[in-house]
């Protein structure tokens, strides 16, 4: 017999899953709950083979429950049941220790298949989710990170960086770029903050280093 605990804040969802599982001969639902905190305690107490948990739950989110259960009851396999067909969620769920991520609107057989898979130690994701999609998501997320602070500067800030390096005061910058001295000051402060520069000398040094300022002028 495969023992299961169900955690979903909707009674109707739990009932649906229970009836589906009990229609199979080799499943036994040990307990169910609609509260996140209770779910972690119940698993610790009943020690089931599988925990089926929804992400959106009062008390603790399913992701947090997953993290807790993974830590406290590592022998229990965790299956996330979610309506979010989103790689970011899947990634977080897997990182927190889930073995499977099943979409609520997928075929009901999908859940049964997922249970079989996780019991053999496999990871399962409902289609259209896939490991490749997750990897590409990670790639995409990584690509948004900038390592060079200069890259974070807006065109305006780059213009101002140039002018500050050339010795323009806020008032002169404001005049040249047709903005108020106050705005110029804000841009200048933001620019310097982004580049971690503290003084005009720092700005000039940075500009020279980046080749923005030629020494011959």
């Amino acid at each position: 017999m495969i023992s299961v605990v169900l955690a979903d804040d909707h009674h109707i969802v739990r009932q649906g899953i229970r009836s589906m599982l009990e229609a199979q001969s080799d499943f036994e639902v040990l307990g169910e709950t609609g509260d996140g905190t209770e779910a972690a305690d119940l698993v610790e107490q009943l020690n089931p083979d599988v925990l089926i948990v929804d992400i959106m739950m009062p008390g603790l989110s399913g992701l947090e429950v997953t993290r807790l259960v993974n830590k406290r009851s590592p022998q229990t396999h965790i299956i996330i049941l979610s309506m979010h067909a989103n790689e970011a969620y899947v990634l977080q769920a897997l990182r927190n220790g889930a073995s499977a991520y099943v979409l609520k609107d997928s075929d009901s057989n999908d859940l049964l298949y997922a249970i079989q898979e996780v019991l053999t130690g496999e990871t399962y994701l409902s289609p259209p989710l896939s490991k490749r999609a997750i990897e590409s998501y990670i790639q995409k997320a990584d690509n948004t990170a900038l390592t060079d602070p200069y890259e974070t500067l807006t065109n305006r800030q780059r213009e101002i960086l140039q002018l500050v390096a050339e010795g323009y005061t806020n008032a002169m910058i404001a005049e040249k770029l047709s903005m108020s001295p106050r705005t110029a000051e804000t841009h200048r402060a933001n620019m310097m903050n982004k580049l971690s520069l503290n003084s005009q000398t720092d700005v000039i040094r940075f500009a020279i280093k980046r080749g923005l300022l030629s020494l011959d002028d």
């Binding site: 992400i55 989110s61 992701l63 989103n86 970011a88 969620y89 990634l91 977080q92 998501y137 995409k140 997320a141 948004t144 990170a145 900038l146 390592t147 602070p149 890259e151 974070t152 982004k194």
Partner: peptide
């Protein structure tokens, strides 16, 4: 559940899908 970065990635993707405006999103 997941914080700013995944949400903004999701949002900008959805935005581009709906508006066909590319979002050049970068952060530090």
């Amino acid at each position: 559940d997941l914080g700013l970065l995944p949400t903004l990635l999701w949002h900008t993707a959805r935005y581009t899908d709906g508006t066909e405006i590319a979002v050049n999103f970068k952060h530090v």
